[in-house]
């Protein structure tokens, strides 16, 4: 089977996954105790208000038989008619909401993936190359501590720390360090093209990205250390050393490239942070992105919005998975998709 066929097969297999995920969302919202109409109306301590509740339920189509609602919901999603939000942003198209909330989360996720990749992996490799030295212990312990600190705790602590950072950043607090920003708030992505806009937006997102990436940073550190250790004890490394390959070339070409293979799924799985894991950090740092939007939509029973977001999340996840498989073959040509 060649790569293209494999790809097609993967895409076909994604359809049931999509169906299952969106069905689960529908079931949770419509068969659970959440009533979006009640979320809109509020207390209904009178006959009139209860009539109003019924009218809104009627408007939203909540009184139709459940299979009719389900069929309509699924047809709309799979024809990419994502509809309008009911409760959270009433009357607004979910597509335009996605377009407005998405970039902030992507910006956050991007840095949350980059920070661990550029700090965790080098540290891990460093530890692996200096195994069982004090430097290794220092790096490893740091990694374990990072891994152990929960997001919600770290976020609050970092927020408090940065607020009282007057002496930490060259005499100025974090807010006025390099460029004036507030600690809490969404980054302004409208002027990313200009150097100043880029620095501002980056600085604004860094604390949140650091928190979001902290667990992965620990993971990647530990994994890359192990991977380097494993490779470095292989026979072919000794052979390469024996034939006089320089240390730089040995590490760069023979150790690192091989050590990368187990790291790929780890890094790509960090990319899921983009979609799901950011709710808490977004809320604490006041970055109103997709995570917050999804959480609000789910708790308010906003079916069109939550359903569409779920649909998009699953699409993203499936795409990332497929990309990951393709990446394997690029890094290690021995991996193929031929049937044996």
């Amino acid at each position: 089977m060649n790569r293209l066929l494999y790809l097609l097969k993967r895409i076909l297999l994604a359809i049931p996954v999509l169906l299952l995920g969106t069905t689960a969302t529908f079931a949770i919202i419509r068969l659970g105790p959440l009533n979006p109409a009640a979320a809109i109306v509020g207390p209904v301590n009178s006959a009139q208000a209860q009539e109003r509740l019924e009218r809104i339920e009627e408007q939203l189509g909540l009184n139709d038989p459940i299979h009719v609602q389900y069929a309509e919901y699924i047809t709309d999603l799979f024809t990419f008619d994502l509809g309008q939000s009911w409760v959270v942003y009433p009357g607004q198209d979910t597509v335009s909401l996605l377009a407005q909330f998405g970039p902030r989360t992507i910006w956050l996720g991007l840095w949350a993936v980059l920070i661990p990749v550029f700090i965790g992996i080098p540290l891990g490799i460093y530890a692996g190359l200096n195994v069982n030295t004090n430097r290794d212990y220092a790096a490893s312990i740091t990694g374990i501590v990072w891994r152990a600190m929960p997001n919600f705790w770290l976020a609050v602590i970092l927020l408090a720390l940065l607020s009282r950072s007057d002496t930490l950043f060259l005499g100025s607090g974090w807010e006025s360090f390099i460029i004036e920003t507030e600690i809490v708030g969404a980054p302004d992505l409208s002027s990313l093209g200009t150097p100043e806009g880029f620095v501002t937006a980056t600085k604004q997102i860094l604390p949140a990205a650091f928190v979001l990436g902290s667990a992965s940073m620990g993971n990647e550190l530990r994994l890359s250390r192990t991977a380097v250790l494993e490779i470095i004890n292989e026979d072919f490394i000794d052979t390469a050393q024996a034939v006089g390959v320089s240390r730089r070339r040995l590490i760069g070409k023979h150790v690192l490239r091989n050590a990368m293979i187990p790291l790929i799924p780890v890094i790509t799985s960090e990319a899921y942070i983009l979609v799901g894991g950011s709710v808490l950090v977004e809320v604490v740092f006041g970055i109103n992105g997709i995570g917050t939007l999804f959480f609000d939509a789910m708790t308010a029973g906003d079916l069109p919005l939550a359903g569409s977001l779920m649909f998009v999340f699953i699409l993203l996840t499936v795409c990332i998975n497929i990309m990951q498989d393709i990446l394997y073959t690029l890094i290690d040509p021995r991996i193929g998709y031929e049937e044996r």
Partner: peptide
């Protein structure tokens, strides 16, 4: 008017005197 949901975040901004 900035949308900030988290009370801790709102409180932090206040303590920073922003």
């Amino acid at each position: 008017m900035q949308v900030v949901e988290n009370t801790d975040a709102i409180f932090r901004r206040a303590m920073n005197r922003n």
